[in-house]
Computed example of a mutant assay.
Amino acid sequence: MEEIQQLVRDCLANNRLSQERLYRKFYPALFLLCRKFFNNPEEAVEVLNDGMLQVFTQLSKYDAEKGAFFNWAYTVVRNTALDRIRLRKWPESQELEEDVGSTQNNILSKLAWEDIYKLLDNLPPTTRAVCSLFYLEGFSIRDISDKLQQSPGTVKWHLSETRSKLKPILEQHYLK
């Protein structure tokens, strides 16, 4: 913990070596976060790099009394990924007003991360983002709607698409 606080202090002093060490320390976890949203690894790295640039430029806003540095950096990178998704041209989608099942007992929580990424690769980008936020990050439909600037009905539609596209794959390969 003290090592991270020292790295943060050095980064605030614009020490490039400390910035690189901090980047490398969090790269694995933050890359996996970005892969939740983007199936192209190059795009995931690009978003991670954009997010870490935000971390370094907004480092003075970090308050150690409010929480761990990793949690703050994770949030900054996740928000950078969501901004990238939000700025894409959204295809017109149908809205679905049915209730969406809870995240309890969802099969994704029982799979290894490698399997989850293989499953997510089968989804279109927007549906993948909604699925990741709902099932993997635990966001509510309202929160996803606010973050992606879409109606709750559209978010529900994407969750329905997730279930319809992944159900046959899960039944065939994982639920035997």
Rank of each mutant, 00 (worst) to 15 (best):
L108M: 13
E95V: 13
T126L: 13
W72L: 06
L120K: 06
R128N: 08
V47A: 06
T80Y: 05
L159V: 03
Q149F: 06
G153Y: 01
L22I: 13
N106F: 05
P41M: 06
L108P: 01
Q19S: 08
L17G: 09
R88H: 10
L111V: 06
Q6P: 00
L166D: 01
K167F: 02
A44T: 04
N122V: 02
V76F: 11
E95M: 10
S109K: 15
L136Y: 08
R163Y: 11
L111W: 06
L136F: 10
I169M: 07
V155P: 03
V155G: 01
E92C: 00
I144W: 11
L12F: 05
K25M: 14
L82Q: 08
R163C: 00
D99S: 09
P125G: 00
F70K: 07
L175N: 03
Y174K: 08
Q104K: 15
E98T: 10
E95H: 05
L87F: 09
N79H: 14
V130W: 02
L159G: 07
D143Y: 09
G51V: 04
E65Q: 15
P28L: 02
V130F: 04
E46R: 12
F69C: 05
K176G: 09
K176A: 08
V77H: 10
T75D: 10
A64S: 14
D143N: 15
S151T: 14
L22W: 10
Q5F: 09
P41W: 07
L48A: 02
K110D: 09
D121K: 13
Q19T: 06
I4Y: 06
P41I: 02
K165W: 00
I107H: 06
E137H: 13
G51I: 04
T57Q: 14
Q94F: 11
L111Q: 01
R142I: 10
N106A: 07
T127E: 06
R78Q: 15
L96Y: 11
I169V: 15
I107S: 05
A29N: 13
Y27V: 02
S151Y: 02
